[in-house]
Design a protein around this nucleic acid. Structure first.
Lengths: 104, 104
DNA sequence: CAAGTACTTTGATAACTGTAAAACTACTTG
DNA sequence: CAAGTAGTTTTACAGTTATCAAAGTACTTG
């Protein structure tokens, strides 16, 4: 299967737009932030509870995030574990970030 | 006065989602990158030529970017000068960036 | 095996989006 | 003032999206 964004190659404009579009929804910003705060994996049910959406709706957002290459899921039994693809996120964010970005 | 994102206050989830949504289109990624590369202002016609869209279409994308607080425009005579709101961009990008983000 | 759990998919719908084309405003130049 | 320029708005439309509700799948537990 063809790989998704893997931080080794610079993502194209279209790929980056897809990533930003995927983050461009309040529910998905919450999902990303929740995943970002995890050091270990987290299950779909836990995410749905934390974010406050139904599992069905979470599953829809899941597909958007997976398509954009931001999230990977691993299924074990009937529970699915979500992982944030930190490299893909950093690649997109970094492509538009200022050289010295945390200045204040 | 400052009704838009101004990097002093942490943008809400909704505000940041709006910014990411605004960047979530290939044409607008190109516009942002073009603006990012400018040290001075750039006119609408120049942007349209560089990005390869009509002025009418550019104007549509303009409204999305202005609504999100990413772009400011100043009109002088019949030409409008665009400026990137670097603080708003950095605030959104930074809110999801990893602590040590430029590692490789 | 029946019931429950954890998703996943499908269908429906209302709202939104990107694009093109055309009309419009307002400034500038001859 | 007529023509051209720069930008804006409007109209139209096909395609997409977020959400809900309901049905489906597959694993687990009693």
């Amino acid at each position: 299967m063809s790989n998704r964004l893997n931080a080794e190659i610079a993502p194209s404009v279209e790929e980056r737009a897809l990533v930003f579009k995927a983050i461009g929804d309040p529910t998905r910003v919450r999902i990303i932030e929740l995943l970002r705060a995890q050091s270990l994996e987290i299950t779909g049910t836990e995410i749905a509870e934390n974010v406050g959406v139904s599992l069905a709706l979470l599953c829809h957002h899941s597909s958007v995030l997976v398509e954009a290459g931001l999230v990977t899921k691993r299924k074990e039994g009937q529970t699915s574990y979500w992982m944030l693809n930190r490299d893909a996120l950093a690649a997109a964010l970094g492509s538009l970030a200022e050289p010295g970005s945390s200045a204040h």
